[in-house]
Nucleic acid binder design. Structure first.
Lengths: 224, 224
DNA sequence: ACCCAATGTTATAGTATTATCAAATTGTTA
DNA sequence: TAACAATTTGATAATACTATAACATTGGGT
């Protein structure tokens, strides 16, 4: 899966770095580590991570300074940032949140809590972004009602779009004709047999690709 | 449109309820309180809050149970939920996060921390709503109710303005007719289908641009 | 290789949706 | 309250979408 979430962790304590990296990697995240603030910024620029975990107390730039710098750069305007802090000092916590961090964790860190928190943050983010589906050259945006192939817009009518979106929602899965009818036309409306075929044909025509496969006697599936 | 964020707080301790309500109200939030889980669900259904704060330990349903129930209801799929817990018990914290809560706070609660956290959570959500929106030649100022095209003022009537502002708030996104009706006219008022069309037409006329695209059978979107 | 059911193709007619205009209603301001 | 602007509605025209019929083709089973 190339869509593994990327995380950059910055902490000056090698032990912590290692523990966090181990745990997050085990969970399937793509982890990059940094020993200090500057390295964190540099790695962030290079890897475009989905989440940045910053220790507040670091030699050189503090996590808060790093966060401030990152927030000034457009690519990191909305990137998730979590602070790590040994202090249970309230004012620090607040400063952190108001700097634009999305959360903070207090050391000593329980890996279970960290993972929960990370997963939880991503869960929220995923919901917002699930409107866009990318499969190879094809990009389907449910919100914008747009289908793109290699960046070029392809105009689909409503039913065509819905049908494609349905099939593409689970690439590889074979959708039975009945399933498709229920999902797109609903149970009340009854349409003839050829209706689905015709829509499928139009999609194939417009996409100019063979990404919808017929499974005879069963249904259709979206692939490649 | 009163766009004050609404919050429902559930806790069985009246003191805490009062403190939280006081602080959050002072910050401009619209607070509703509930003494137990069932009441929380009921109030949530009635007020459609933006955030729900749940004490975990409550007589009757626990906060976790309430959260589970809420998450099953479509309207609350994405609502922010924060847990309040007296326990620093790690397993509880994790159970909370994995239930679908967005964060948790440990009692005793510092109101400053609470406010920071709440503000921080909403900040992320609010990014979309900056008062001035610029898209190409067009500039929309929600506060001053002014639209400019290449620096020149364009005078739009209120509904026209609101409609344009709505569409432009998420360029590219297709707004369903129902969505538009709910956002601009509200659920109580019922207007005919032609109303939207006519307003769209006037906006197009006054802007002298083709920036509003019709997606037949779906809705309208603002582009370019 | 043949058959037959399932699917592909095409053109077309019917339908639903939207654009446009004018007129009616409501709201606002002097 | 008159005058004017804003909003809504209804009728009608223009348009795009969809379903279907009729026919062609395919491919698996025997």
């Amino acid at each position: 899966m190339s869509n593994a979430k990327k995380i950059v962790i910055a902490d000056d304590e090698p032990d912590i770095l290692e523990i966090l990296e181990f745990n997050l990697s085990a969970e399937g995240y793509e982890v990059t580590t940094a020993k200090n603030g500057d390295e964190a910024i540099e790695k962030a620029k290079r890897t475009s991570p989905d989440l940045i975990i910053l220790d507040i107390m670091m030699p050189g730039k503090t996590g808060i300074e790093v966060c401030n710098l990152l927030r000034m750069m457009p690519p990191f305007k909305d990137t998730l940032i979590i602070f790590l802090t040994a202090m249970s000092d309230e004012s620090t916590e607040i400063k952190g949140l108001e700097t634009g961090a999305d959360d903070y964790l207090t050391k000593p860190i329980s890996s279970k809590i960290l993972l929960s928190k990370v997963n939880s943050l991503f869960r929220r983010l995923n919901k917002e972004e699930s409107t866009i589906v990318k499969i190879g050259d094809i990009e389907i945006d449910r919100e914008k009602y747009i289908v793109k192939k290699k960046g070029e817009d392809i105009i689909l009518a409503r039913k065509e779009f819905e049908l494609l979106a349905l099939l593409a929602s689970k690439p590889g899965k074979v959708f039975l004709r009945n399933e498709i009818l229920n999902q797109i036309w609903g149970t009340e409306v009854i349409v003839g047999d050829r209706t689905i075929d015709v829509h499928i044909r139009k999609i194939r025509q417009k996409l100019e690709m063979d990404c919808i496969t017929t499974v005879k006697g069963v249904g259709y599936k979206f692939e490649l």
